[in-house]
């Protein structure tokens, strides 16, 4: 190795970073394109006709129903050939238009989604962060404590194996029905309107606790198990033994081990994001929580192509952005990845 390089080193790192990011962005754009296409196609292959659901709500005479039907079919552009519908979908997408909801006619899909998005984000993000932090800490704590490990491990396995909706139902039944301490439906009381008053926020939090804890608990198990195994592995690693042989304290060795054990967990986070989103959707349905998951379900039940499309688009974009953030994060916390991309090792 020559040591005359550091001058050029910063420069090469910038070039590399640009190359790395461009490559990643290209992959994400492609992923988005295919995901959006599939998500456009799938609702249209469902049997049934969304306009029927709409007409049924107007309860008119059979003759006028026929007129209405052809009117709406044309208005939503569903009489066009599929290819044309597909092109129109992208054209409208780039104008920021996700169409009009059939089920919530005549509200635009974007408006419906933006209204429910905060509920999902405020439920999902804290749940992911809290479960990741607590799960990892707890897993690391349990590792190498034999008795505690024997008790904790089965609990972690049960938690991680539990389906989100099942665990949600369990919590709702226990705390909502049996103990009657928490409400089991909605994001706030029916008598309230959303505002930034203390009364609303506290009421919101009160409703938020159950779906939030059910998400956290299910996600926590997986993180804890992963961390426990990684810590045991790292404490057995040669560098741990060497530090111990040179008289290092357990706390320093554990600190080093934790730092290295967290790396694969961050990778796991990227992989888990999709599942976490799916978990939130089902949890929202269980708790009738007015987030994306809940309206997505309504959209599916009513064959609302545009609403389903819109919801999935937001989910796809969300997961992709989160993955991108994790990619960048990984670059920062693991020198090995960084160095291997710069071609230094």
């Amino acid at each position: 190795m020559n040591f005359s390089r550091p001058k050029g080193r910063d420069c090469s790192e910038v070039i590399f970073l640009r190359k790395y990011l461009l490559k990643k962005i290209l992959i994400y754009v492609l992923t988005f394109f295919f995901a959006a296409t599939i998500n456009w196609a799938i609702p249209r292959f469902m049997p049934g006709n969304p306009i029927h659901f709409l007409i049924a709500r107007f309860a008119t005479l059979p003759e006028s129903a026929k007129v209405l039907q052809s009117y709406f079919t044309q208005a939503f552009g569903l009489d066009r050939p599929l290819m044309e519908q597909y092109v129109n979908f992208w054209r409208a997408f780039f104008k920021g238009d996700l169409g009009i909801s059939i089920y919530l006619y005549p509200q635009p899909v974007l408006k419906v989604i933006l209204r429910s998005l905060p509920y999902t984000v405020l439920l999902l993000l804290p749940a992911i962060i809290v479960s990741f932090v607590i799960g990892n800490r707890f897993g690391a704590f349990v590792a190498r404590k034999k008795y505690l490990d024997n008790i904790a491990l089965p609990i972690f396995y049960t938690l991680t194996a539990a389906p989100y909706f099942w665990f949600g139902i369990l919590l709702a039944w226990l705390f909502g029905v049996v103990l009657k301490v928490f409400p089991i439906a909605g994001a706030y009381s029916f008598a309230m309107t959303p505002s930034f008053s203390w009364r609303f926020v506290s009421n919101y939090l009160y409703h938020w606790i159950l779906p939030f804890s059910s998400l956290v608990l299910v996600m926590l198990g997986g993180w804890a198990i992963g961390m426990r195994n990684m810590i045991i592995y790292e404490l057995e690693a040669n560098y741990s033994r060497y530090m111990e042989a040179l008289g290092s304290s357990q706390s320093l060795i554990r600190r080093y081990a934790y730092r290295n054990a967290i790396l694969p967990q961050v990778t796991g986070l990227a992989i888990q994001l999709g599942t976490a989103v799916a978990g939130t959707l089902t949890t929202e349905i269980v708790f009738s929580y007015p987030g994306i998951g809940y309206i997505l379900m309504q959209g599916i039940l009513n064959q609302d192509y545009f609403l389903i499309q819109g919801c999935f688009l937001f989910i796809i974009v969300g997961v992709l952005i989160a993955n991108f953030i994790v990619d960048i994060l990984y670059l920062i916390i693991d020198p090995r990845i960084r160095k291997s991309y710069t071609g230094e090792i």
Binding site: N238, Y239, L246, G247, N260
Partner: peptide
């Protein structure tokens, strides 16, 4: 370390890589 120290068999990967 202060009085008795060791160069281990695995000296090549005795240091934390990160």
């Amino acid at each position: 370390y202060e009085k008795i120290s060791i160069i281990p068999q695995y000296a090549m990967d005795a240091l934390n890589p990160t």
